[in-house]
């Protein structure tokens, strides 16, 4: 198994007729992902064609989901319209909306977050690379690739990876694959201050997934999401966990005021987060090159053999 998505999950792409959305829809089709519909208002009735695939385009998420049975949307809509695109997924009752768009105004996301609270649809992102459940084919083809991650660096396996950053996720995935191991699912939750799914949400899913045997948790300076996840892991998670926090050397910021420091709290520096990780039994990677090795150390310490 995996979390959130499987190779049979049906995907629709909002913004499939744009250059970026179109390119990644092609890459997902090449990977073997079930891209069953596109949505671009005003272009309903047209088709998105690629390498023998003929994907129907609809005017709305409602129509696309009703006609094709898609349960997940990936959003490549420009920032001014992306908040609206997320709300449309929620209104259509999809299981999951994955928003890749970078640069959405914070106010828009504050309102979206308020509107989707308590609703059925889970949001991942925005400003995220998406998620991948690798398949069994060559270069992990036959899996489900939602977003912009490179599919070929993955390998089907049992390590769950969650991160805010795209390229750091790829780094971790690649290290795991290079060791001959593989991933159950890798999830990029995005770097924006207001986002849908948190580190902790994903950690809980990995903890419940029998096919995920170990977890890599990658975080950054700012906010307290990693600390919240670490404390939960200490209390609830028996699986080996390795962690890395980026930004230990980032300048404290040229912020003008001081309000951020007192609202952010004392635990939003890299140093503080790393200390909490250690206290919670998470094996900390000393450098980003050490993430896979840190996971092997964590597994060894818990007597878990990774395959």
């Amino acid at each position: 198994m995996s979390i959130l998505i499987t190779p049979t999950t049906k995907i629709l792409v909002q913004g499939i007729t744009g250059a970026f959305g179109g390119k990644h829809a092609q890459l997902s089709l090449d990977y073997g992902t079930q891209v069953v519909a596109g949505v671009t208002p005003g272009k309903g009735g047209q088709f998105f064609e690629h390498a023998g695939h003929k994907v129907p385009i609809f005017n709305s998420v409602h129509e696309a989901a009703a006609a094709t049975g898609a349960t997940v949307s990936v959003i490549f809509v420009p920032p001014p319209f992306a908040g609206d695109a997320i709300l449309e997924c929620v209104d259509a009752g999809l299981d999951l909306a994955v928003c890749i768009t970078e640069g959405i105004p914070i106010k828009d996301m504050i309102r979206v977050k308020r509107a989707i609270t308590g609703k059925k649809t889970r949001l991942i992102g925005p400003n995220c690379p998406g998620l991948v459940t690798p398949g069994t084919g060559e270069g992990s083809k036959g899996g489900c690739r939602i977003g912009i991650a490179p599919g070929y660096i993955h390998k089907k396996g049992h390590v769950g990876i969650v991160s805010r950053s795209g390229t750091l996720t790829y780094e971790a995935v690649f290290q795991i694959t290079s060791k001959g191991l593989g991933q159950s699912t890798s999830v990029g939750i995005g770097g924006d201050p207001v986002n849908g799914t948190s580190h902790l949400d994903v950690i809980k899913l990995f903890n419940e997934d029998p096919d995920t045997h170990a977890i890599i948790l990658i975080g950054e300076i700012g906010g307290n999401a990693e600390v919240e996840a670490a404390r939960w892991i200490k209390a609830n998670c028996k699986k080996p966990v390795a962690g890395f926090i980026a930004g230990a050397t980032a300048p404290a910021g040229r912020r003008m005021g001081h309000a951020g420091a007192i609202v952010g709290g004392a635990e939003d520096t890299a140093e503080a987060k790393i200390a909490v990780f250690k206290e919670c039994g998470i094996e900390v990677a000393a450098t980003p090159s050490d993430m896979a090795d840190a996971l092997l150390r964590a597994a060894k310490a818990k007597g878990v053999t990774l395959s």
Binding site: T169, A248, T249, P288
Partner: peptide, 13 residues
């Protein structure tokens, strides 16, 4: 990538 850029600074340090 911002995350990789930040951790590149970290690894230099």
């Amino acid at each position: 990538g911002a995350g990789l850029a930040m951790s590149t600074m970290d690894i230099i340090k």
